[in-house]
């Protein structure tokens, strides 16, 4: 009598189930997340060392309109130029805070049909250590409702941009790269030798 291999049926069944599940999942509605938003701007970080940079993001604004970005505090005003909102009324721009700015509380103003204001705390440049402190979102709170990312680029700044941040592979000399690549190869080869050697030991040293 012929006997079907028991695993063949489950595999065929599983393949059909997986296909059905994928189809089902793709038809389920995704919860909506869009909603009417009040005009707002948000800063990241909310405090920065003079000479650093800060991201400003706006949302809920009139689409395809210009806004002027200004830093103001005491008798100091720094004009960062103009940004344009995208089709969804959002923008995002990086502002370079002048290194000579005295420490204290300032306002970032987004001026257009309405003026939106966000507070920025600036610390004197001399306070910076290694690595340069980069104040970030409030450590405790969850991200608050606010602007959505936009395609806004950098705006003209009144101060030199700080050293570019390293996020990719470090440039290396050929020698250094060769040494590291050689080390990687050596480790892999040593590992392969141990694997093979263990195979030879296996029969010789029954436990």
């Amino acid at each position: 009598m012929l006997r079907a291999r028991p695993t063949v049926v489950p595999i065929a069944l599983l393949a059909a189930l997986a296909a059905a599940a994928t189809l089902l999942l793709s038809t389920l509605p995704v919860l909506g997340h869009e909603g009417e938003e009040e005009p707002a701007i948000a800063l990241e970080p909310a405090s920065v060392t003079a000479g650093g940079s800060v991201l400003v993001a706006g949302t809920g604004l009139v689409p395809d309109t210009d806004r002027v970005l200004v830093l103001a505090g005491g008798n100091i005003t720094v004009d960062f130029g103009t940004v344009r909102t995208d089709a969804e009324g959002m923008f995002r721009a990086e502002l370079a805070i002048p290194a000579h700015l005295p420490g204290g509380l300032y306002e970032i103003r987004c001026i257009g049909d309405e003026t939106l204001v966000a507070e920025l705390k600036v610390m004197p440049a001399a306070m910076g250590g290694m690595p340069t402190p980069e104040p970030s979102p409030t450590s405790g709170a969850a991200p608050s409702p606010g602007p959505t990312p936009a395609t806004g680029g950098a705006v003209p700044s009144a101060a030199p941009t700080p050293k570019p941040e390293a996020t990719g592979p470090r440039p290396r000399s050929t020698t250094e790269l060769g040494v590291l690549a050689g080390l990687a190869l050596l480790l892999a080869l040593a590992g392969a030798v141990l694997v093979v050697r263990a195979e030879r030991l296996r029969g010789a040293t029954a436990g």
Binding site: A42, P149, T167
Partner: peptide, 11 residues
């Protein structure tokens, strides 16, 4: 990887 600096309120 190291992504962009965080912006509160967006995902």
């Amino acid at each position: 990887p190291l992504g962009p600096r965080p912006v509160p309120g967006i995902e």
